[in-house]
Design a protein around this nucleic acid. Sequence first.
DNA 1: TAGATTGTTAATCGATTAACAATC
DNA 2: TAGATTGTTAATCGATTAACAATC
Lengths: 211, 211
Amino acid sequence: MKKQKVSSAVIRRLPRYYRHLTDLYLAGVVRISSSALGKAMNLTASQIRQDLSCFGEFGQQGYGYNVSSLRDEIAEILAMGQNHTAVILGVGNLGRALAENFHFDRSGFTLTAIFDVDPNVIGKTVSNVLVRPIDELDNYLKENPTSVGVLTVPRAAALDMAERLVQGGVKGIWNFTNVELNISQSDVIVENIHFADSLLALSYMISENET
Amino acid sequence: MKKQKVSSAVIRRLPRYYRHLTDLYLAGVVRISSSALGKAMNLTASQIRQDLSCFGEFGQQGYGYNVSSLRDEIAEILAMGQNHTAVILGVGNLGRALAENFHFDRSGFTLTAIFDVDPNVIGKTVSNVLVRPIDELDNYLKENPTSVGVLTVPRAAALDMAERLVQGGVKGIWNFTNVELNISQSDVIVENIHFADSLLALSYMISENET
DNA sequence: TAGATTGTTAATCGATTAACAATC
DNA sequence: TAGATTGTTAATCGATTAACAATC
C-alpha cells in the first residue's frame, strides 16, 4: 500500500497546492490544467503532474483537474480530516497571536488547551480556550492524547517543555523558539519556524540583489 | 568579483550555520572541524565545506575553523552589518509579538517604525518604537529609505500594503500574511512565512509517521 | 472526430557525497 | 614529523524537465 517515500521537496509543495486550489475554488474556478496551475504557481506543468503522481491519479486527459476534488484529495493527503488536536505552550504575544489569529481549524486542527505560568492569565480564556497552569500539562496530555504541541515559550523553557511534550506522547512539535530541539531519538516530528533564519535569508537576498 | 549564483539550498543553510556557530561561540568553543559541525547539524562534512567554498576559504588544514571568525564571516555574507532597517505594518498580536519579542538587532536590523490604522495604538510606542498612522507610510518611506517592510496586516489589506511598500522603495518584504504577493515584476524580494503551510507539512509528517 | 491534457518513462540538470592531494 | 583536516575535483544520487503514448 505504502508508496516509496515522498521527497521533502514534494511535501513542502503540497500545502502550496492546497492554498492555490482553495483560492481558485473560492474564485469559482471549476477546472484547471497542470500548465495553468503551473503558470500561477511558478512551477512547470511537468513538476505538478510528477508531484501528484506520488499519490495517485487525480486528473483526466484532455480536461485537466477538477479544482474542488483535487483540493479535497490534497486535503486528504495532508491528513486534514483526522481531527488533529493542538495545545499551545506559552501564551505571550506570539502564543496569543496564534491562538487568536491563526485558524487551526482551517488546517484540520482543533486547539484544545493553552498552558502558561503567568497567574494573571491562568484561568482566563483566550480565543475561547482555557489557559491552564503549566503544572497540569503532564496530566492533561495523559488524559487527552494530543497531536501537536505548539512551542511558544521563552528560550529558557524550551528544552524542558519539549521533553514534557514528548513524554506526554504528542506526535509533533511546532517549534517557534529559536532553540534547536534534539529529540531525534524519539519519533516525534519537529517542525521549526525560525524567524531569524527567514529574515537572514531575506537579508542575504536583498544585498545580493543590489550588487 | 561576483561568484556564480549561490543556490537557494545553500542560502537557506547559512542562517543555520550562523545560529549553530553562535551557540558554539557562546559555549566557549574555539575551533571546530567540518565533521564535528556536520555531526551537530546533521549534515555531511563534505556539504559544509562545499557550502562554504561558495564564499571563500575560511578554514585551515589540520585545524578546522575558528568558531568566532567563521561566525563573523557568515554574518558578513548574510549582510548583517549593513544597518538594515525594518518597519512593521500592522501591530495586531503578531506585529506586536515581533516588535516586542523578536530581536531585529540580532539579525542586523533596526526596527524604525510601526504603522497601524487603529487610533487606540497610533501615537503610542511599542517596544520603544512609535506607532504611526498608516496614511503616513508613503511619506515616511520617501524620507526614510527602508530595507524591509514586515507585513502583519489582515489579509484584506495585504496586497495594497505590499504595493505601497514596493512604491516606497523597500528592498524586501517579510510577508506573514497568507496572501501570495505577486510582485515579481519589481525587484523587491518577498520572503514568506506561511504558518499554515508549515503546520500542514507537520500534519502530513505525523500521519505518515504512524502508518 | 480533433484537440487537449494526462500519467509515466527517459533525459537532463543540479545538489550532495566521496575521494584525495595539499598543507597546516 | 605525523596526524588531521581543508578546499576542490570527480562520482553519485536525486529532483526537475522533456517527451510522448494513452485517452478523455
